[in-house]
């Protein structure tokens, strides 16, 4: 029976994620810290955790008018809603063309269009509950040379699930032509599970079907190593520690210049990471629960996470 097969595999379902992990572990009052990327950015900067540089913020409609002027001298940047979800409303500007801008992918973006998009962001078009939002412009991160040949037309990120300060699962989301440069699995990006113990990709899925190579470049993905992976896990855990949230998905981008930086945190991380890793989350989460409430230093917790992953593997046995 499929039900018991899923349970044996330790797959975490949506109901259980919400009732057993999100509700008890994540205090609603702390959600704004992660839902608002500006707040997350401030939080991380205070703790010395690297984040993309912030170029400009527009909170009110009148601030949109001079937004392009405030970006004078910046060749590339990213315009995004501070409270956006699932990558909605993000515009990546890769260069300039006359008065206007050039989007990554080559489409032109007029100054008026740019302002209109920013105004839409402020109106709450892309925010989680349609609330008023802020438009933020930040540094456009580059693709790390070691990952460049694994991604097409966009910057891959590493999603780390951190539960009670312990990293339990990670994947990297590799943009494809079909995802038009975005790192969202449901938009066609390649989801590659990372073995926490070795820091190497050990499994990948495109949609729901397993894949070993990138659909556009044909490069073999499985087996590739993630650069600075220990550091990736450390800043993911460090940033999560600052939020006070118990169950977080941390999105880390590995910039060739800055190294791993926190892109954003997510208090409702999705479950597709299980598909990318061909492993269920439950054994690992329950193992972390069994550790109890002992206070451990960050490095120790990262080590425990990597060992747990090796123990649990992908066969579901705890």
């Amino acid at each position: 029976m499929r039900l018991s097969a899923l349970r044996r595999a330790g797959v975490l379902g949506l109901n259980r994620r919400n009732a057993r992990y999100l509700l008890p572990a994540n205090d609603r009052a702390r959600y704004p810290l992660v839902d608002d990327k500006l707040a997350t950015k401030r939080l991380c900067s205070e703790a010395g955790i690297p984040v993309p540089r912030l170029y400009a913020v527009a909170r009110e409609h009148h601030e949109v008018r001079d937004l392009p002027e405030r970006l004078a001298g910046r060749g590339s940047f990213v315009l995004k809603p501070a409270r956006g979800a699932m990558g909605n409303g993000i515009v990546v500007v890769a260069g300039r063309e006359g008065e206007g801008f050039l989007r990554s992918g080559g489409r032109a973006l007029g100054v008026d269009e740019f302002r209109y998009h920013a105004a839409g962001i402020i109106s709450g078009l892309y925010s989680l509950a349609g609330h008023l939002d802020a438009a933020m412009v930040e540094q456009r991160l580059e693709v790390h040379p070691l990952l460049a040949e694994l991604a097409e037309g966009g910057v891959p990120d590493v999603r780390v699930i951190v539960f009670r300060g312990v990293p339990v699962m990670a994947m990297t989301r590799l943009p494809t032509r079909r995802s038009s440069g975005r790192a969202n699995l449901h938009q066609g990006a390649l989801g590659a599970g990372i073995d926490l113990a070795t820091g190497r990709i050990h499994h990948a899925v495109l949609g729901r079907s397993p894949a070993t190579t990138h659909p556009d470049t044909g490069r073999r993905v499985v087996g590739a190593a993630i650069p600075a992976f220990e550091r990736v896990l450390q800043i993911a855990v460090g940033a999560t520690d600052r939020t006070g949230l118990g169950y977080v998905g941390a999105d880390v981008v590995i910039d060739p210049e800055l190294g791993p930086v926190i892109l954003e945190l997510n208090a409702r991380p999705g479950l597709a990471i299980q598909l990318a890793n061909r492993a269920g989350l439950r054994p690992r989460l329950e193992a972390v629960e069994r550790l109890g409430d002992v206070e451990l230093p960050l490095e120790e917790r990262v080590r425990i996470g990597r060992e747990l992953a090796a123990l649990c593997g992908s066969d579901g046995a705890a």
Binding site: R2, L3, A5, L6, R7, R8, A9, V11, G13, L14, N15, R16, A19, R20, V205, R208, S209, P210, L271, Q274, L275, R278, A279, G280, D315, G316, A317
Partner: peptide, 26 residues
Amino acid sequence: IGGYTGYRVADLLRFRALAVSEGPAS
């Protein structure tokens, strides 16, 4: 229903690959 933490039918479909690939584990 609010206290139901079991799988949704959609979970079964979505993670079907994980269920099939597993042998009976201890």
